[in-house]
Amino acid sequence: MSEKRDFFDLERGQVLGPYPARLDSDHARAYLDATAATATDGSPDRWLPPLQLGALLVGVLIDAIEIPPGLLHTGQSFEFLRPVAPGTELTAELTVAQVAERRGLRLGTVDLELRDAEGACAVGRASVLAPLPSAGGGPA
């Protein structure tokens, strides 16, 4: 992972990545254990838990930016475009869709895309906010 970006310096249209990623069956079982989930027919042996792809994208976002005090993840959307087999070579890319400042808060929305060899396999949008440093910067 390259150097982290300051959340308050993100600009609309800025692209972060691409970042290579891979989730194997052991990762999938650890994810199921960590979410108190049970294996289902086909998952995780044939296809990864869909939200694990989302968690991977959010993890890439967390890795890509310096988390300011009080950052809140307020909203999230995902679209799963096809099942992804364990061990698939993946690429994550993030695009800053919107930034705004309102009432002492910095709001950001970031588009998330995960690709395999066929193209996009999961996409999403994360909404986050954090107090502006000049607003005190304490945890929200």
């Binding site: 027919d41 995902f78 799963f80 096809r82 992804v84």
Partner: peptide, 15 residues
């Protein structure tokens, strides 16, 4: 829904 969820699922939520 099993694999149909993995193939075509969409989620949009707010905490």
């Amino acid at each position: 829904f099993g694999e149909s969820w993995a193939a075509t699922g969409q989620l949009a939520v707010r905490w």
